[in-house]
Design a protein around this nucleic acid. Structure first.
Lengths: 236, 236
DNA sequence: TTGCGCCATATGTCTATACATTCTAAGGTG
DNA sequence: CACCTTAGAATGTATAGACATATGGCGCAA
């Protein structure tokens, strides 16, 4: 794979930063210097530096120069795969079993639900994900009918609502909260595991602009599932 | 805030996609059409579209055109904060208590440890993180002396090794695995909690290029800690 | 009808230039 | 010495044009 010139400039600087040759707060060569180093026009250099700035690796200050950003060790990329896809990738047969489908108003006094409902009704969708017939996760989902009226007519018997939403509803923002909880009686019963079993709890909310679309709680069997986050070039 | 022209083109198309006016797989106007619409040069249009492509909102195919991408939930940004900072931010007093500091060879037959050691010795560093005096997490860490010889002389009595490494050792790649496990007798004893309590297990490995630096297992008290991942503009 | 090759189309990259905007530092003035 | 002005430096934005390269459809030939 031959890199284009601006990609080469970009990766050169990138590796200088990642290897520590360029330390945080260090000043980068100015555009004119890089023009001479690589014998190219300023626009080419600019494209490389702008990309690095967009990626958060460097900070550019008009009139002052370009500087290496502070290590951003604090963020990694978390893969949040669609469950059916993920289960299939691990070589198992995926199954989804709907448990509850209920059209209802937001619970009075529950601020979360009231925000999600936006004055209209909510669709509650609970279900059980399984792999090779064994329970994998229990899901409790609320969908705002104000934001997604079409879901009232969707066929959600075989396909989990998360997959349907992913395919039909564009969203702009999401937040996922990950914790560990013991299974209560109901969860434990559905997952066919003793009460108190360690479960990975994934809570996710989704927005389109400032409008709330859906909120979901997924209880994964702790020993059967894990999440992976990465930083840097993907590793097998 | 007045947007520059390429930003305006970018946001115009962005909102057309997010509002659903442009559906996934739809074809965008070609660059020459956008040039006429906005009465600008091709480079300006190109900059806007390239930014959208870099953000994953659209897909560009040379010779074919630009198309709205399928919504992908596949990646979110996971905040992996430095524990002392995170605890302080929540208004608690952070504490770290070293438990084990042992220079040893890789366990024979343990492929993970042998890869990490790279033929030389490992530094094992176990410790307990606490918030307001209450146990928060147990940490079991291995550091490759081949990669980080300086850590043999570091003062790790008050500062956890993770924080020291973060500040002194540049790394290029990391992988974090998140799962839920029950506390075994040892973990439970350290965390002052019953055996079997649900713990959030965070396993992280770090590389510099292809050299392994450190591997750590952190067992968090499930009810006392959670991780957050985000997609989209930061939300309070 | 099928398969191949060509060409118009559309994006990818790069150049050279121009002017705007913002920051820094030098130098002069009170 | 403190303050203000100003010139230069550096990035931000935009233009117009050139050539490169991948795509897909159309027409021609077997």
């Amino acid at each position: 794979m031959t890199l284009s010139l601006h990609e080469r400039i970009r990766t050169d600087i990138e590796s200088a930063i990642l290897s520590g040759k360029l330390a945080p707060e260090d000043r980068l060569p100015v555009e004119h210097e890089l023009m001479q180093t690589y014998k190219c026009s300023r626009m080419t250099v600019n494209k490389a530096l702008s990309a690095l700035a967009a990626a958060g690796l460097i900070e550019r200050r008009k009139g002052a120069g370009s500087f290496v950003g502070r290590p951003h060790a604090h963020s990694m990329i978390l893969d949040v795969p669609d469950l059916p896809v993920e289960v299939a990738k691990r070589g198992h047969v995926y199954g989804y079993q709907p448990l509850v489908r209920k059209l209802r108003a937001a619970a009075r006094g529950n601020a979360e639900e009231e925000l999600l409902a936006g004055g209209r009704r909510l669709l509650q969708l609970d279900g059980l994900h399984s792999a090779d017939g064994a329970p994998l996760a229990v899901e409790r989902r609320l969908v705002s009918l104000a934001a997604v009226p079409a879901i009232a007519d969707a066929d959600l018997e075989k396909e989990p609502p998360g997959t349907w939403l992913l395919r039909h509803v564009p969203w702009t923002e999401a937040e996922t909260r990950i914790s560990a909880v013991p299974a209560d009686a109901e969860i434990a019963g559905l997952l066919k595991t003793p009460v108190g079993t360690a479960c990975l709890l994934v809570e996710r909310q989704t927005w389109r602009s400032s409008e709330r679309i859906t909120a979901v709680r997924q209880y994964f069997l702790g020993t059967a599932y894990h999440l992976v986050a990465r930083f840097g070039s993907s590793r097998p």
